[in-house]
Simulated assay, not measured.
Amino acid sequence: MKKLLLATALLSSTALTGCVVAVTDGEYNGHHSWKKEQRENREKISQLKIGTEYQSVLNKLGTPEYTDMVSKGDTVYQVLYFATNSKHSDGVVTKDECTPLLFKDSKLVGFGDTALAHLL
């Protein structure tokens, strides 16, 4: 009886072993999704107009990767950083892989490294 149980257990385990096939839409573990998201961010940013409201930008682009507040004189600026130019996906987005958007009084006053450099 023990031999029969052992043989059944061995045969069952080999019958249950198999191959797992993952079906995706071409974006394995988000590999391509970050490229798509960054391309879309670049497109959306390029369509922004000076004076666009802060909340409107958030509605259009979503949550930024980073945010800063900078005070210069009596004026407070908000800076939102959106991922736009990563070269590879290592799971970490740094500020140098982002485009900064500059707001004064909740209105867009510029974007890009040049705009940020003028502020500082």
Rank of each mutant, 00 (worst) to 15 (best):
M1F: 14
M1L: 14
K2N: 14
K2Y: 09
K3D: 14
K3R: 12
K3C: 03
L4K: 10
L4C: 04
L5H: 08
L5W: 10
A7C: 10
A7G: 06
A7D: 11
T8C: 06
A9P: 09
L11M: 15
L11N: 14
S12Y: 13
S13P: 06
A15W: 06
A15R: 01
A15Q: 05
L16T: 12
L16F: 13
G18V: 13
C19S: 13
A22P: 02
V23H: 01
T24I: 12
G26W: 07
E27M: 02
N29V: 11
G30N: 11
H31M: 07
H32G: 09
S33A: 03
S33C: 00
S33I: 02
S33W: 00
S33F: 00
W34N: 08
W34T: 13
K35N: 10
K35T: 10
K36T: 15
E37D: 13
E37F: 02
Q38G: 04
Q38C: 03
R39D: 11
R39Y: 12
R39Q: 13
E40W: 01
R42G: 07
R42K: 14
E43H: 07
E43P: 04
K44G: 00
K44L: 15
K44T: 12
I45D: 09
I45L: 06
S46T: 06
S46D: 13
Q47C: 07
Q47R: 15
Q47S: 14
I50A: 08
G51R: 06
T52W: 00
E53W: 02
E53F: 09
Y54G: 02
Q55D: 14
Q55G: 07
S56D: 14
L58P: 10
L58N: 04
N59L: 08
L61N: 04
G62W: 09
T63H: 06
P64H: 00
P64G: 00
E65M: 10
E65R: 13
Y66L: 01
T67K: 12
T67D: 09
D68M: 04
V70E: 10
S71F: 06
G73D: 01
G73I: 13
D74I: 12
T75F: 01
Y77F: 15
Y77T: 11
Q78I: 05
Q78K: 15
V79D: 09
V79H: 04
L80M: 15
L80Y: 13
L80S: 06
Y81D: 07
Y81L: 01
F82G: 05
N85E: 14
H88N: 11
S89C: 06
D90H: 10
D90V: 01
D90F: 06
D90P: 04
V93E: 14
V93K: 08
V93P: 11
T94V: 13
T94C: 05
D96A: 00
D96F: 04
C98I: 04
T99P: 11
T99Y: 03
L101W: 08
L101S: 09
L102T: 11
L102G: 08
L102W: 06
L102S: 07
L102V: 15
L102P: 11
L102R: 08
F103V: 07
F103S: 03
K104A: 12
K104V: 04
K104Q: 13
S106Q: 14
S106G: 00
K107P: 09
F111W: 14
G112F: 02
G112P: 08
D113L: 01
A117L: 07
H118Y: 13
L119I: 15
L119W: 02
L119Y: 04
L120M: 11
L120F: 12
